[in-house]
């Protein structure tokens, strides 16, 4: 009998799926960046309803950020590193459970409130797309399994830092060992969580979640008033020719033609340049 670790289902779930999901996710992200900058938005509905959003959105996003931080700490950073800085296993586990549960509660409360808002407020409901429904479903599964895994692991029965975490890091060096995921120590709930979230990553670029990739981190260092010439290239050429009037618009705006079919880009293409 073939051990499950090298069986077809395990390979499919822990080797094929991650790479397919990452391939779809990353190429999808590039594709959308290049072709649909217009659709790249958070699609806020605050205009339509703000009372529930005021707390639910904040709680949800803060919880998500905490959860991401927790995953970085628990999955991306090797156990040996945290031990090297003097965090013992017990201390780590306490941190992980306390942080994980509070983040999970925040995410769940926020998510439920946002879902309630989305499906009971008629105005918000009409802005809901089919893709939104898909992504809400994937998020719900990811959140539920993540929370369940955290609660399940309160007694520290699964040392995922010696199984799930190394497996996850192996993916990025193209040597994933599925037996780490199918081993004795990994509870089913962890397996479900890991698998479910790959689907989320694959769907990510095609959904409203892409707004997470355009967090305006450069805003504080940008010049407050942005100037832009009608045609950045022509303006730069003119400045070069006449030695003055250099375009002093903010560098936060790429000077070249926008990759997404801005008027300037298309005109030049049409002129055969």
């Amino acid at each position: 009998m073939i051990p499950f670790a090298t069986s077809v289902p395990a390979t499919a779930a822990y080797v094929v799926l991650p790479y397919v999901a990452l391939a779809i996710g990353i190429t999808g992200l590039i594709w959308r960046r290049r072709t649909d900058s217009f659709g790249w938005t958070a699609r806020s509905t605050e205009l339509l309803e703000s009372r529930i959003l005021r707390f639910a959105s904040v709680i949800f996003h803060v919880g998500v950020l905490m959860a991401i931080g927790g995953h970085v700490l628990g999955i991306l950073i090797p156990e040996s590193w945290t031990e090297a800085v003097g965090i013992s296993d017990d201390v780590y586990h306490l941190l992980a459970v306390a942080g994980g549960i509070s983040a999970g509660i925040a995410v769940i409360v926020g998510f439920l409130a946002l879902m309630y808002r989305r499906f009971t407020n008629p105005r918000v409901r009409v802005t809901t797309t089919d893709m939104d429904l898909v992504i809400f479903g994937l998020l719900a599964v990811g959140i539920a399994t993540g929370m369940a895994a955290t609660i399940f692991n309160i007694p520290d029965s699964v040392n995922y830092r010696e199984s799930v975490a190394p497996y996850f890091r192996q993916i990025f060096i193209f040597q994933p060992d599925p037996s780490l995921m199918t081993g004795q120590g990994v509870a089913t709930i962890f397996q479900v969580h890991v698998i479910a979230v790959w689907f989320l990553y694959a769907a990510w670029p095609f959904s409203r979640l892409i707004h997470a990739f355009t967090v305006p981190v450069t805003y504080p260092i940008r010049s407050p008033i942005v100037y832009r010439p009608r045609n950045p290239r022509a303006a730069a050429a003119r400045a070069k020719r006449y030695g003055s009037g250099s375009p002093d618009y903010s560098p936060s705006i790429p000077a070249g033609p926008q990759p997404t079919g801005s008027t300037g880009g298309r005109s030049r293409a049409a002129q055969g340049e």
């Binding site: 217009f38 938005t41 355009t214 008033i225 942005v226 010439p229 375009p247």
Partner: peptide, 23 residues
């Protein structure tokens, strides 16, 4: 996002629809 800008040529204030991110 820096999506809003003044045009250098005539000072008209516009929103770059491709850069607006719904903030």
């Amino acid at each position: 996002s820096g999506a809003m800008y003044k045009r250098e040529e005539d000072g008209i204030v516009l929103v770059d629809q491709d850069a607006c991110r719904s903030w």
